[in-house]
Design a protein around this nucleic acid. Structure first.
Lengths: 214, 214
DNA sequence: CGCCAAGTCTAATCCGATTTAGAATTAGAA
DNA sequence: TTCTAATTCTAAATCGGATTAGACTTGGCG
């Protein structure tokens, strides 16, 4: 098969991919997520991804158009998975739950997911601020929807009177998400503190810090 | 002058550098800090630094041994300046001030300094997690001293009974510093909120979130 | 088995960035 | 002014990593 055609082929969402190809493609994505999670966007090299996936750098091009293409798919998946998880946790509480409880659950899920559960999610937070403009525009489009979801939870908790409505929602959200997204830089599982305790602390600071004064 | 000798010369802390050389060297450091602050370690290119400094990439090598050398000096300076500033602010309060007030002042100073006052400080937070191991070891040595300073303030505020002593100090510090260090990624001066309000919010969340329950 | 497509590998090639060599310029002293 | 060291510039060398070309291998199927 000619190269040009092959490239288009790999790129296209072909109807029936062979099981073998599908599997390898997933392995490569997983490997890339792992590497991105530890190196961040700019320092991620195809050689390390290939090693992790048990293949050669050149072979990646059968499954993906380019380094950028591969990385973007990991990042998009990372945002998608985070959103999916957090939404599921919140939905599981049901709409009868207090808005603040829903928000706390979301926060806890976000932190835990990206800290220890998903390389894809951690790939995103480790890459924010390094992704080149064009790609970031696309990833950020989905990311904003995720942010809006949090913002809605915050708004609801303010409306219910549980949170102080005078606080700037955007700043509150970003400070909190920022604290969470920064954790991969310093948190080590082997330390004295475990992940759930860390979640407790973040939620506690949020809740008590912003609760309506009585 | 032969090249080898010149390189060693540039590298050495020679006793009397000509005013012109000293000035240009400072301009280059400033330019590098600016670029690092907006691009982070991995995406920073010598060309952009040279442009910013009004010179050519090759000319940088008269003043610095290498890209790594230049960047490391910016980062070291960033840590040094942050520490210096925060310590000065705290010292200005005097040891008579309540420990919690000293801590709050330190937090505010840290956030403001790296968000709008110093490219060097922002260069550090934008580069954490991208700096290669060897260099990071050296920068981190100073960084830890800065962290210890904060830790001492926290410990004092716990001893005085103002903060809940059951909270893990390390996690508390890193969550808070993390929230602060993440702000360059999202905060825009032109928005509805100004820097001082943002500092207020961070301090408020910290104080009310961790204060001893009564 | 022998064929075909899918998937992988090796060995270049390309390309952008750092780095170097040495020539050219500048500023200050004699 | 002239001389000299300090500084800067230009152009080329080098280096590392992404990408490509094409040969090779594998697995399913007649």
């Amino acid at each position: 098969m000619a190269m040009k055609a092959l490239r288009a082929y790999a790129q296209a969402k072909r109807p029936q991919m062979s099981p073998r190809g599908e599997l390898k493609r997933k392995q490569i994505l997983d490997a890339a997520a792992k590497v991105l999670a530890r190196r961040g966007y700019a320092s991620t090299q195809l050689l390390e991804i290939a090693d992790e996936a048990g293949t050669q750098p050149g072979s990646l091009y059968y499954h993906f158009e380019s380094r950028e293409d591969l990385i973007e798919q990991v990042l998009q998946e990372g945002v998608r998975l985070s959103f999916e998880r957090v939404r599921a946790v919140v939905d599981a509480l049901g709409s009868g739950a207090a808005p603040l409880d829903r928000l706390k659950a979301a926060l806890r899920a976000h932190l835990k997911f990206q800290l220890v559960e998903s390389d894809y999610a951690r790939a995103v937070s480790r890459s924010i601020g390094q992704v080149p403009g064009e790609m970031w525009k696309r990833v950020n489009a989905r990311f904003r929807a995720y942010g809006r979801f949090f913002d809605d939870l915050i708004r609801a908790a303010m409306k219910s009177g549980e949170l102080d409505a005078r606080v700037d929602r955007g700043a509150l959200r970003m400070l909190t998400i920022g604290a969470a997204n920064y954790t991969p830089e310093w948190f080590r599982k082997d330390g004295s503190m475990n992940v759930d305790q860390l979640c407790d602390l973040l939620v506690r600071m949020f809740e008590r810090g912003v609760r309506t004064p009585h």
